[in-house]
Write a protein that binds this DNA or RNA. Structure first.
Length: 283
DNA sequence: ACTATATCCTGTATGC
DNA sequence: TGCATACAGGATATAG
């Protein structure tokens, strides 16, 4: 559920609390949460000790906490991952998987993840960009992103436009919610073959994606329940602004037609049947 | 090389 | 009331 805006809210929350602090202890409560760490839980606990944190960074849905020594603690929230800052004595939330304590005895950093799709790992020399994120494309918020050039890359794929938007090696940060919202704004059917769209039309879709994610970020992100919250445990408000995602049967904000939900790649797509009709070429 | 699907996971909602 | 099933969907390994 956390997509680019939600991860950015978390990054900003961590940026306000972590830079300059030295890790005193790392405790892994569930080994699966560090499955991407090659050395396993014991090594993870050892290797983080006495590191000093710098300013957290993000690309798409990936986060990393650089250390002053040039390495980084990389993180992905998966479906249900949260970072929480809590006083060392405070009771652990259910599903707390990893706890970092600090030398200053200030608030702990706790990684909470109900479904354990997310995880943490040490990225050697990863302060600028963790090495195993090399295949992740830049996101739409990165400076210098050229929508026209990106549109040409999108059009090189034979899949439907929504599938390409969700491909993190093409453009990162977009998930099911903002893909549906962007396609609604641009009035494009999700199964439209990307290669058949004009460059200008693809650019409009990408622009709509950037626009809707910026609006969501300004409202603190999209949250349906306690599964997504920021580092203080509070929710964003963008769910009330969604036009199609989760709005099956409700009127399209533009034309009033009932929004439909359709099966898509083991999940769902939401669209307005009138604003986003199925193109004749798509099957 | 490219594209599509199965898989991981658990709490909540729904159906019988 | 209780049990079973569907669903939410990130990234990635694997199959085609």
């Amino acid at each position: 559920m956390p997509e680019l805006p939600e991860v950015e809210v978390v990054r900003a929350g961590l940026a306000a609390a972590l830079p300059g602090r030295q890790i005193a202890s790392a405790t892994v409560l569930h080994p699966r949460s560090v499955r991407r760490h090659p050395g396993g839980p014991a090594d993870f606990e050892t290797v983080l000790r006495s590191r000093v944190l710098a300013v957290p960074r993000r690309r798409g849905k990936f986060l990393w906490l650089p250390f002053r020594d040039g390495d980084a603690l990389a993180a992905h929230l998966g479906m249900s991952g949260q970072f929480r800052l809590d006083a060392p004595g405070a009771p652990l939330l259910p599903h707390t998987r990893v706890v970092l304590g600090f030398a200053d005895c200030g608030p702990e950093l706790r990684f909470v993840d109900q479904r354990i799709f997310g995880g943490l790992w040490l990225a050697p020399a990863g302060a600028d960009l963790p090495g195993d994120l090399g295949h992740i494309a830049p996101d739409l918020f990165e400076p210098g992103t050229d929508l026209a050039a990106l549109a040409l890359a999108v059009r090189r794929h034979r899949s439907g436009i929504k599938r390409v938007l969700l491909d993190q090696t093409v453009v990162s940060g977009i998930g099911n919610i903002y893909a549906d919202e962007a396609l609604w704004r641009a009035r494009v059917h999700p199964e439209t073959p990307a290669a058949t769209m004009s460059p200008a039309r693809v650019s409009r879709v990408l622009g709509a994606a950037r626009e809707v994610m910026a609006e969501a970020l300004a409202q603190g992100g999209t949250s349906f329940d306690a599964l997504y919250v920021n580092v203080n445990g509070s929710s964003g408000y963008f769910s009330r602004s969604l036009a199609v995602y989760g709005q099956e049967g409700r009127p399209c904000p533009r034309c009033g037609s009932p929004i439909v939900r359709e099966a898509f790649a083991n999940r769902s797509s939401h669209r307005c049947p009138r604003c986003q009709p199925r193109p004749r070429t798509a099957h």
